[in-house]
């Protein structure tokens, strides 16, 4: 027996360290967010921070740090994006995985990945210059910057991930299921909707969860179309999300001020939201694998 060469051992340790870097980053991010986010929450009070209906951080005499409007806006925004985006995304995925002639699918696939690659500021710019004025004109609003505009932009932005994951799940449905359904005299569309989609449901659920995560996490595009006033959410009014709540004040909040600390507290809340969704996501994926 020879001893393992020192080079081998040190490389193994080096690779282990690389692997642990990801874990270290997650811990670091969590620790820093908690450390930076807690002071303001402690000062404002957890209940009045989470459930306060007024965000008025720059009021010199009586600043208010209630983020309920931000939380609700993020929830409604994500829900709206899902309601608009998931049906279109799922139908497109069925088309791509089942109905499309191969040539057309070959064109649509790169189109979807291009849609995924477009920077969010470009979506924001187009939303700002096309969607917002259009909404103002059609709905006769004083301003088109609104939750509705943000929902529409988010719906487009979550499309690629919903399509990608759902199509992959649909393609993985065993052919035997579809054959059995066709042999019973079901038509192709009936087979896709009544056998393929239910059989792919855990993958589709994961696609929706990913879409929710994207919608909650998006900042730049909606910063450009939502108007950014911290109103309680209403479809046609200007609103502020958790992400944009941080973004809009980040560059001018004085270091060390309660305002700046409160922004980190919003970050902590956002982080907890996302972790919750991630855990749900990995649970749905796991359950899907077991069935």
């Amino acid at each position: 027996m020879t001893k393992r060469k020192p080079a081998e051992v040190s490389m193994q340790i080096l690779f282990l360290l690389c692997g642990l870097v990801a874990v270290a980053f997650v811990l670091l991010i969590t620790a820093y967010l908690i450390a930076a986010g807690l002071p303001a929450i402690r000062q404002v009070g957890l209940a009045s921070f989470l459930f306060g209906r007024t965000w008025d951080s720059t009021n010199e005499t009586d600043p208010r740090f209630g983020i309920l409007p931000l939380i609700l806006t993020s929830v409604y925004g994500a829900a709206g994006a899902i309601v608009v985006g998931v049906p279109i995304g799922l139908l497109t995925a069925i088309f791509l995985a089942k109905a499309a002639p191969p040539r057309l699918a070959g064109l649509l696939r790169p189109a979807v990945s291009l849609l995924a690659g477009i920077p969010s500021v470009v979506y924001g710019l187009v939303g700002m210059c096309v969607l917002v004025p259009a909404l103002r004109a059609w709905l006769n609003l004083p301003a088109g910057d609104s939750l509705l505009a943000a929902i529409l932009v988010l719906a487009v932005m979550i499309l690629p991930s919903v399509i990608d994951l759902s199509a992959a799940a649909l393609e993985a449905v065993p052919k035997e299921y579809e054959e059995a359904s066709l042999a019973l005299g079901a038509t192709e569309p009936e087979t896709w909707f009544r056998v393929s989609v239910p059989a792919a449901k855990s993958g589709i659920a994961a696609a929706v969860a990913l879409g929710i995560g994207r919608a909650i996490g998006e900042a730049m595009a909606i910063l450009m179309v939502a108007g950014n006033v911290a109103n309680m959410p209403s479809l046609l009014r200007s609103v502020r999300f958790l992400t944009t709540g941080i973004a809009i004040e980040m560059n001018y909040a004085a270091p060390g001020s309660l305002q700046r600390q409160a922004l980190f507290s919003i970050g902590l809340v956002l982080f907890l939201f996302i972790m919750l969704i991630n855990i749900l996501l990995s649970l749905t994926v796991k359950r899907g694998k077991e069935v």
């Binding site: 990801a22 980040m250 996302i274």
Partner: peptide, 27 residues
Amino acid sequence: LTAMIEFAAETLAGIPSMIYALVGVIL
């Protein structure tokens, strides 16, 4: 350990860029 590292990588992939911005600013 593998599961832990993979979970950490998935978590990093899911964190929104606004959070990374905050972390970048503090860290």
